[in-house]
């Protein structure tokens, strides 16, 4: 399951029919179910953030990005970086559905010697662009690859998803300032604005107020959406910026899709019991 492609094939994008809003919704249900069973089997995971980011990931991988699972190193592929790397289970589930990895591999998540570590590893998992886990690394890397596209004369877009609590890290603001300065219209940063972090609500920790205004002040185009509405997601993610990087302020619900997990801080990394998984799967049927 290792990438192991010493010479990246210089092929074009595969023919993939992007899904419409209804089809994305159906796909996201499967992904959410897989996240639950993956975490159940592993006994570890970050289910709350997995659920809040799922619709964003599904929209990108099935409705927006130029990708070829058979050639994960295709030079002009769109780049995706999951900066909130603790939500690896949702990324793996999407990569499996999209054909980058075997769906059966999900059962090995976090098990001894598995390629599917608790945080994503690009040296072991095709489709992963950067090893993340410490918060605040994804945006600078996305800025770099967006600049690199220009230097190489390649036509690709760079996408990065951060948590909202994650935006408390200063590295994001250094990168945001520079991306605005460089007018990186091929860069789209999405914040999974679920208003919860590890131990408390963001508002009770370090407020992050007026995020859109902040990015606007740094020279970004701001698109505020419902991060669970596929029509809005497709619109906000589908179009690159006009002479500016795009900041998608995606309002989401942590634990989305499972009533007893929604908007509850303890589900940041609590592992559901077998009975809870049964309940949750019923809701996601």
């Amino acid at each position: 399951m290792s990438i192991a492609q010493a010479h990246p094939p210089e092929t074009g994008p595969a023919n993939f029919a992007f899904l419409n809003a209804d089809e994305l919704a159906a796909e996201a249900k499967v992904v959410r179910r897989n996240v639950l069973t993956t975490i159940q089997a592993a006994g570890i995971g970050h289910v709350g953030g997995d659920m809040s980011v799922t619709d964003i990931l599904v929209t990108l991988f099935f409705g927006v990005m130029k990708l070829d699972p058979a050639h994960p190193d295709m030079v002009d592929r769109d780049r995706f970086i999951l900066s909130k790397g603790h939500c690896a289970a949702s990324l793996y589930s999407v990569l499996a559905r999209r054909g980058f990895i075997e769906e059966s591999a999900l059962a090995t998540f976090a098990k001894p010697l598995s390629a599917l570590n608790g945080h994503p590893n690009r040296r072991k998992v095709p489709g992963v662009e950067a090893n993340t886990g410490p918060l605040g690394h994804g945006l600078p890397i996305a800025v770099g690859t967006a600049i690199g596209a220009g230097i190489r004369g390649l036509d690709y877009r760079a996408f990065v998803v951060t948590g909202d609590g994650e935006l408390q890290e200063g590295s994001n603001w250094e990168a945001a300032m520079y991306a605005g300065h460089r007018k990186l219209s091929n860069l789209t940063a999405i914040v999974d604005r679920n208003r919860l972090q590890q131990g408390a609500r963001t508002a009770d920790t370090n407020e992050l107020s007026r995020l859109g205004d902040k990015f606007d002040a740094f020279g970004w185009e701001v698109r505020e959406i419902d991060g669970h509405d596929y029509t809005q997601l497709l619109d906000a993610l589908g179009r690159p910026g006009e002479g500016k990087p795009v900041f998608v302020l995606a309002n989401t619900t942590k634990g989305r899709g499972v009533s007893f997990m929604e908007d509850r801080v303890e589900w940041h990394h609590k592992v559901p019991s077998d009975a809870e998984v049964v309940e949750a799967l019923k809701e996601l049927a």
């Binding site: 592993a42 570890i44 790397g85 603790h86 976090a110 570590n117 608790g118 945080h119 590893n121 090893n131 993340t132 886990g133 410490p134």
Partner: peptide
């Protein structure tokens, strides 16, 4: 932090 891997 075991399974959380080398970042952690």
């Amino acid at each position: 932090y075991g399974e959380l891997g080398p970042t952690h």
